[in-house]
Amino acid sequence: MSAPDPEDKALRVEEVISGLLHWGVLGSLTLITAGTVLCFLEPGTYGVRGGSPADLHRFLTAGAAFPRQLAWFLGGLSRLDGTAVIVAGLLLLIATPVIRVAVSIIAFASVRDRMYAAITSVVLALLLFSFYLGKAG
């Protein structure tokens, strides 16, 4: 067995990251599109058959914060509620770059690039710390 070429190793990291982003994007696109279609089919959401100008006005002026309790979300998903499916897609979209950083650490470590595994770990730590601050603030 010959030693792996360093150029090949770099290519593997890029393939892993590119593949992850591809599937993350495809998943979010599918969920958000499906959720939007469901919202137009379910009575009492966006309005069946496209809704009316009054429906739009109601949506654009909605001042109340969007419901984001875990119970609502899980319940909505099990009922295939359109809004919950959209939220699942948006959450996947937000999570994809974070997962990308975490996966990069593993990818660099697996090709024994210690320096870049360390650099990427610092990015993840800073990111998680800012999530923590955001939640507290």
């Binding site: 909605a62 969007f66 959209i86 770059p97 974070v98 999530f131 955001g134």
Partner: peptide, 28 residues
């Protein structure tokens, strides 16, 4: 830019500013 934005997005989401009706067509 995606990584920096993801950190802010989490904060906006928890605050309830991410409205699915508006964010969905923007995202797609």
């Amino acid at each position: 830019i995606g990584v920096t934005a993801a950190a802010s997005a989490a904060v906006y989401f928890m605050r309830g500013d991410v409205q699915p009706f508006i964010a969905a067509p923007v995202a797609v």
